[in-house]
């Protein structure tokens, strides 16, 4: 470390790594991982989403899992929550759709309407 700038750079690099432990204002993806979800292939979808995020260098996204929400026929179900936006629920998300959601919704802020099954009502 030869300067404050060097410190700053190392901080930024590592911050991505531990952001999971501290931040709360980042984009969140929740993937249904109940029995129906797993059976429908949610694991593969999740791995594809993670891979796409890595490729796009979007390291600040939080990914969590949840159980069955009751709409088993539409599994794998993926919820996308961009900060300040209502939560969006996507259905029948296979690995390929998962990747497209990452690129379009998370990176480019354009939700993909045809796959949406619900948008959170905040009124």
């Amino acid at each position: 470390m030869k300067s404050l700038e060097d410190l700053e750079r190392l901080k930024e690099e590592t911050l991505q790594d531990i952001r999971l432990r501290t931040s709360s204002g980042s984009p969140r993806i929740v993937i249904g991982m109940g029995t129906c979800g797993i059976a429908a292939g949610a694991r593969e979808t999740m791995l594809a989403i993670i891979d796409e995020l890595k490729v796009r260098r979007k390291f600040d996204v939080t990914i969590t899992e949840t159980g069955c929400i009751g709409l088993c026929a539409k599994e794998p179900i993926v919820e996308v929550h961009m900060p300040g936006q209502p939560k969006v629920l996507y259905g029948n998300v296979d690995p390929s759709r998962g990747r497209q959601i990452v690129v379009s919704h998370i990176v480019n802020h354009k939700p993909i309407d045809q796959w949406i099954i619900n948008v959170e009502d905040n009124s």
């Binding site: 991505q16 790594d17 531990i18 999971l20 993670i50 890595k54 390291f59 990914i63």
Partner: peptide, 8 residues
């Protein structure tokens, strides 16, 4: 760099 979705 690895994308870890969870830290324990």
């Amino acid at each position: 760099m690895e994308f870890y979705r969870s830290h324990i």
